[in-house]
Simulated scan of single mutants.
Amino acid sequence: MISYAQNFEDVILWRVLKHIENGFYIDIGAWSPDVDSVTKWFYDQGWHGINIEPNPDFYNKYISSRPNDKNIKKAVSSEKGVMDMFFCDNPGLSSLDESVVKQHERLGFGSQKEEVEVTTLNDIFQKYVKVDSSVHFLKIDVEGFEKNVIKGNDWEKNRPWVLVVEATLPMSQEENYIEWEPILLNVGYLLAYADGLNRYYVAKEHGELLEKFKYPPNVFDNFKLFSQLNAEQRADQAERRADQAERRADQAEQRTERADQIVEGMNSLVNALNCELQSIYNSISWKITKPIRIAKRMAKRFWLGFVAWITFKRGSRPRRVILRLLWALKIYIDKSPYLRTKIVNLLNRCPKVKNRLRIIESNISDYYTSSSSEQDNYLGLRAKEIYIKLKAEIDNFRES
């Protein structure tokens, strides 16, 4: 069994009534459908009943989680009508008794007053309990308002088998049952058990149940607390996550080992290739052919340089020399207006030559006025290499 109740009330009631299949209960002051619930275990075992809870938040929880129950958003007293209810910051301390809530306020709890609809226990029996049907247990927990609830029932007509009534003042061990217990004793209910918080009563016509109240909850009831179950489940989840993490760590270690093996294999291959390459370098044939390779490289450089000279390839030395000479000539002409005028008059007679010279002048001007990245195209390979190194050193110096 899993016990959800605050003080093992469901353990005692289950011991007494577990022989009943599909039983029926009434819970006045039901509060939460799960936390500290006396009826949660019974509902899970196929029982159903009536939950009376004026707090709208908890009432909505009952609507969603207890579809087989009758859930009523009202308070219960000795008469029907409308009353002020004081809802505390701690919902379990809310009450129709203003004096009780004032004591909670002195302890630092806040409260809010709201009007709620009030019914009676007798009215609940008449509306929601079928004739000749049994209510196997009735729980009353209304924070100091128990007497009013008890007074609002016809106990000769409506007789639950077992009653569970909170018998101490809210948030204390001070007993307050003296003011309402005589009512129950006078209508044929027998005190069966007291657990320090509640008092249990059995209708005299079901006196055979008294024997099962002889002992408090114990190991033979074979129950486990819901909080303990939650702790065990969290521990199991943590253990499963730890196992998963350990498996992932093992997999990562295996992948690392495989990677190490691959790296070791690659290193072996590189070493083998280096050895083979070194053996080639040390071979007689490599040493004999060395002059041929040198001659081939020199021939290639000579040929490329020769082609560049012949074709005036972009970036070749002849092209750069000619461009410098033409640029110097242009500057000289620009400084001599007389010479410039004579040349312009001469070129005006030859339009095609003039247009061609304009194109050449434009190219020369672009070369000397372009950005350094564009001038790189006019540099030789060795010049480019030197230029890149110088530029990198200058940039590093500026950054530092």
Rank of each mutant, 00 (worst) to 15 (best):
R320T: 03
R317G: 01
N267E: 10
S316N: 01
L326G: 11
A272C: 03
R356N: 12
L325N: 04
R320N: 04
K342T: 05
K330H: 08
W286E: 10
G305R: 13
V353Y: 12
V270F: 07
S268M: 07
R314C: 01
V307T: 03
A272G: 14
C350I: 15
S283W: 08
F302R: 14
K330W: 10
I310P: 00
I292Q: 08
A328Y: 03
A308C: 02
V307P: 00
G315Q: 03
K330D: 09
M298C: 05
L269M: 08
R340V: 00
G305H: 10
V270A: 04
F302N: 15
A272T: 12
T289A: 12
I343W: 01
L326V: 14
N271E: 10
F302S: 10
F306P: 01
L326N: 03
L277T: 09
G305F: 06
L277Y: 10
K342G: 00
K287W: 03
L326M: 11
Y338I: 13
F302Q: 11
Y332M: 09
V344K: 14
A272H: 13
K354D: 05
L346D: 04
L269F: 09
V344D: 14
F306Y: 13
S285L: 15
I280G: 02
I322L: 15
R349T: 09
G305P: 01
R301M: 08
A272K: 14
K342S: 03
F312L: 11
C275V: 12
N274V: 15
V353F: 13
R349H: 12
R324H: 06
T341I: 00
N348Y: 05
L346A: 14
K287C: 02
V307W: 12
N267W: 11
T311R: 11
V270P: 00
W286Y: 15
T311E: 08
W286M: 15
A308L: 01
L357M: 07
I343A: 02
G305Q: 06
P351Q: 03
A328W: 01
L273K: 08
R340D: 08
Q278T: 11
S279Y: 06
S285R: 11
W327V: 05
G315C: 03
I288N: 02
R317Y: 04
G315K: 02
K335L: 06
V344P: 00
I288T: 05
I284F: 09
K296T: 13
R314L: 07
N271C: 02
T341H: 11
R340C: 02
S279L: 14
K290L: 11
L326Q: 06
E276K: 13
Y338K: 10
L304C: 02
S268H: 11
R356L: 14
L329K: 05
M298Y: 12
K296Q: 13
R293T: 06
G315F: 04
I322E: 03
N274M: 14
P291C: 03
L339N: 03
L269P: 00
P337Y: 00
W327M: 07
C275F: 13
